[in-house]
Design a protein around this nucleic acid. Structure first.
Lengths: 164, 164
DNA sequence: TATTGTTATACTCTATAACTATA
DNA sequence: TATAGTTATAGAGTATAACAATA
């Protein structure tokens, strides 16, 4: 769409001030961005993060923290390096992320018998309890996301990306 | 599934998250993340940005800068507020982003006759020239992205997101 | 009063590097 | 030497708030 590449001032503005203050259509050409998947992926990702953060604000859990809690819970005893590579979180950042979770009593770092360098990660009972609450809220977010995209488009997207 | 907690599990040892081409299976359970589209969208977005940044590093243009140059070029005379809402860039951040581009002689902020508050944005000749180069490099990135996803999946994704 | 653009602050995220302790 | 984890720094990105000029 919008193949228009008129260099001279294309329908910029809305000459009726009162009428379209909160206009919904951009009226502004995206031009080459239309052929860049990254642009659309980023827009979607921003929406998703904002909704996720808002939904889990009451328990103060960020998307990255949520993903860490989920993976630790499902893979008890894994190391920070394993968690980091699984989630694509750099180890320096992961250390601080875990400091935060440990400081809140949600996560434990247990010394490994086999390898003195490793910390084996586990959720505390409180961590498991908070995670359960987080999953409930995250599901609510996911439902909202599906509604925003439409069920058909949602299934198409998650199907295409999940086993990629 | 996989509730395994084998303490001696060895990491798969992926070099860089970005270089995770078609690696083997995770070996670590993603559990509830599998039902969250946001998790997969974020992973894809991270890969895309890393490749885009690497590809355009030689001309020092970030994804956000690229999107701004494209939209200014295609909509000459638009205001910062219009550009910001179009791209989802907050106006405070956009001001600094434009400082940078203007400092490099790529963008001009012209006072509006009609409204003394507005700056009408235009590319300079140098800006247009750099944008042409940027588009070439960005196309190269896009080709790589399509290859990574597979043409079919790529078309499916961009089709689903473009007119959403 | 509201809007446009600017400056400032704070926090998160990303990318490095340097360091320790273990292997 | 290499790996696991920590600390530190710098740069972007994000979210606010306050402000001046203009509407």
């Amino acid at each position: 769409m919008t193949g228009s590449k008129n260099p001279s001032r294309r329908a910029v503005a809305l000459r009726h001030p009162a009428a379209t203050q909160r206009s919904r259509r951009p009226a502004i050409a995206l031009d080459a961005l239309n052929s860049h998947l990254g642009y659309f992926v980023r827009r979607l990702q921003v929406w998703i993060f904002q909704d996720f953060i808002r939904t889990l604000r009451r328990i103060d859990i960020s998307p990255a923290q949520f993903s860490a809690l989920v993976v630790i819970n499902a893979n008890g005893g894994l190391s920070q390096a394993e968690l980091g590579t699984t989630l694509g979180i750099e180890r320096a950042r992961l250390a601080r992320l875990l400091d935060r979770l440990q400081g809140r009593g949600l996560v434990e770092r247990l010394p490994s018998d086999a390898d003195g360098r490793r910390h084996e990660l586990e959720l505390t009972p409180r961590g498991r309890s908070l995670l359960a609450r987080a999953k409930t809220l995250a599901s609510r977010h996911e439902t909202r996301l599906m509604q925003k995209l439409g069920a058909e488009r949602y299934e198409l997207l998650i199907g295409a990306l999940r086993n990629w």
